[in-house]
Design a protein around this nucleic acid. Structure first.
Lengths: 217, 217
DNA sequence: TAGATTGTTAATCGATTAACAATC
DNA sequence: TAGATTGTTAATCGATTAACAATC
C-alpha cells in the first residue's frame, strides 16, 4: 500500500475504533457518520472523508455503517489483529508508565521487555495486567532481538543525553520503527533505510496551555 | 494578544529555544536561520516565517539574530520568566513521570503537588531535583487551590473512567488550563468559559509507527 | 413518497515552501 | 563590490469543510 497517512488520520481512526468499543452495540446495528460525530467530536463530513480516503465504502444510505463491518475495516487499517510486540528502552518512570499504558492493550500492542543500564533496575520484574515484564540490561539487547525476530518496534524513554546513542544501537540491531519520547529531536542517520522514526514531545501540549493562559485576551 | 497560535508553532518555537540553550553561544554571537535549520531540522524559510508571524524582527542582514536578543524574544513568547506552577491529578506512574519530567525545568514549569485518592499513594513525597513534592488526597484539592491562587494549570493523569469527573472538579475549583493525558477525549462542558483544554494522546505516535510497519511498500 | 444518509467532488481554509527585493 | 541573509510576499501544498447527486 502506497497511500501516505498522517498522524491526524491515524488519530481519528483510533477515535472511531474506540468509540465503537465504547458503544458496544450489537454487531448488526448501524452507526451513522452523524452518530460518530456525536461521540468523537469529529465532524460527520470528516468521518466520511476519512472513510473515502481509506477506501471504506460499506455504508448504507439512510442507515449508516454496520458495526461489525466497520469494526473489521478499522481493525484492518489499525492492524489490530496482528498486534505488535514492542520493547521499551529506558526503565525509568516514563518507560514503566508506557509499559503499563492501558490503551495499548486495546490495540493488541504488548510491551514484552524493558532495557536499561542501571544496576538497581536490571532484573526487576513489572507486573502488568497479570503479565510479567522483565527489565534487562541493555547489553543483552542484541541477543534478545536475535532470539525475537518478530520485534520490530521500540519505544525510547531514556534521558536526553542517551537518546541518540540508543537510537543508533536500535537501528544497528534491526529495529524498524522507533517512537522517541526523550525530550530531544532525533534524526535518522542518512544510512538508515526503511526505518520509521517519530518524535513524541510529551510536554508540547502543556507549553501551548501556558502560552494561552498568559496570552489570552 | 489576539493572535492564535497552533501547537505546531509552539513546538517549533520550543525547538529554537532549546537549540539556543544547547548551542550555549556567547550572548553577542549571531545565529542565522540557516544555522537554526541545521540544528532543529526546521527549514530556514519556516524559521523566518515563524519569526515574522510572531513579530520577531531583530535580524541583521548577513549576520542573523543576536543570541541575546533572540533568547529574550523566545522567552517572552514562551513566558519562560514567568514560568508556571502546575498540579498533577493522578499519582500513578504517568503522573509521577510527568512530575519529574526534566524538560519542564528548562521552561520554568514546576509541579508543586500531586493529588490522588489511593490510600497507599496519599502522603508519599516525591523528590524531584532536590525539591519535595507531596501527594495529597483529592478531597483536599479545593482547600489547596484556595490557598494557592496562582495555580491555574493542571495535568490530568488519572484512569480513563475517572477523567471526566476530575475535569469537572478542576473547572469547579477554578483551574483555567488542563492537559488531559488520560486515554480519552475530554470535552469542555458548554458552561466552561475561558478554560483551555488540550487532549494529549500519548499513544498516537506508536499507532502511526505500527501502521507504517505493516503498510510499508 | 419524503427524509436521511452515503460517496464523492468542489470550495475553503490554513500551513509550508519558494522567491526575491532590500541591504549590510 | 559581491555574497549572504533578512523580512515579506506570492505560490504551492495539504487538510478540512461544504455541497449535493444518488438512493435506500
Amino acid at each position: 500500500m502506497k497511500k501516505k497517512i498522517s498522524l491526524r488520520v491515524i488519530r481519528r481512526i483510533s477515535f472511531y475504533y474506540e468509540a465503537l468499543l465504547k458503544l458496544d452495540l450489537p454487531e448488526d446495528e448501524y452507526v451513522s457518520s452523524k452518530k460518530l460525530e456525536e461521540i468523537t467530536g469529529v465532524s460527520c463530513n470528516q468521518v466520511r472523508q476519512d472513510f473515502f480516503y481509506l477506501g471504506i465504502s460499506i455504508g448504507k444510505q439512510k442507515k449508516g455503517y454496520q458495526v461489525k463491518k466497520l469494526f473489521n475495516e478499522l481493525k484492518r487499517i489499525l492492524s489490530i489483529d496482528k498486534g505488535a510486540k514492542v520493547i521499551v528502552i529506558g526503565a525509568g518512570r516514563l518507560g514503566r508508565a508506557l509499559s503499563e499504558f492501558k490503551l495499548f492493550r486495546v490495540r493488541n500492542i504488548h510491551v514484552v521487555a524493558l532495557f536499561d543500564i542501571k544496576k538497581e533496575l536490571v532484573g526487576r520484574v513489572l507486573k502488568v495486567n497479570g503479565e510479567k515484564i522483565s527489565i534487562f540490561h541493555l547489553n543483552t539487547l542484541e541477543k534478545f532481538l536475535k532470539e525475537n525476530k518478530n520485534i520490530k518496534i521500540a519505544l525510547l524513554a531514556v534521558p536526553e543525553n542517551a537518546a541518540q546513542d540508543a537510537l543508533d544501537i536500535l537501528i544497528r540491531f534491526g529495529i524498524k520503527g522507533i517512537v522517541n519520547f526523550a525530550p530531544i529531536i532525533l534524526k535518522l542517520p542518512k544510512s538508515a533505510k526503511n526505518i520509521q522514526l517519530v518524535n513524541d514531545c510529551i510536554g508540547d501540549s502543556l507549553y501551548k496551555i501556558v502560552y494561552q493562559i498568559y496570552h489570552k485576551r
